[in-house]
């Protein structure tokens, strides 16, 4: 079923793929416990990882974003470019991983809403889990919001 990026339904579909394939859980080397915020254009989401699964992903307003350990924020065009690249290659190529995109930006795409270094570091400590999650989106038929 075709899903629109960005949308809650799209993230839920990716979550189902990710949770349903154990081979996607080995990249991070084990359990991942964190709540990440995603700012995708004007939309916000909270993504909850518990153990080896993405336990929840839900839309979140600005005030709820403070619950996140860290927030990944990119312009909508860059999110779309990343997701399109994953769709095309089956996984992000070397220029479109979260790590590479972060290196290419003037300001880091990840930050702690509470200026908490410990929580912000989770972006790097769990980086491969998030990459595996977004790479799982290659198996979700995607069309892009034209906005």
């Amino acid at each position: 079923m075709m899903q629109v990026f960005p949308s809650h339904a799209w993230f839920q579909a990716v979550r189902e793929v990710y949770n349903g394939d154990a081979s996607l859980h080995s990249g991070g080397g084990g359990a991942c416990d964190t709540t990440a915020g995603l700012k995708v254009g004007d939309d916000g989401y909270l993504m909850v990882f518990e153990g080896l699964e993405c336990a929840d992903i839900r839309p979140a307003g600005e005030d709820e974003m403070s619950e996140a350990d860290f927030i990944i924020e990119m312009p909508l065009a860059l999110w779309k470019e990343m997701v399109a690249n994953v769709q095309e290659n089956g996984k992000a190529d070397l220029d479109h991983t979260l790590n590479s995109i972060d290196l290419q930006q003037e300001e880091s795409i990840a930050y702690s809403p509470a200026d908490d270094q410990y929580r912000q570091d989770l972006f790097y400590r769990y980086n491969q889990n998030f990459q595996d999650f977004f790479d799982a989106s290659s198996r979700v038929e995607t069309i892009f919001d034209q906005a």
């Binding site: 991070g28 080397g29 220029d95 790590n99 290196l103 270094q117 980086n127």
Partner: peptide, 27 residues
């Protein structure tokens, strides 16, 4: 930067795991 220049999946796994370990050390 080594991860973003990895030549194959073996190197991707090596550098991505090392980043996660090293990030813990820095934390």
């Amino acid at each position: 930067n080594l991860l973003s220049s990895a030549h194959n999946d073996a190197e991707r796994v090596i550098w991505s795991h090392m980043i996660e370990d090293h990030a813990r050390h820095l934390t």
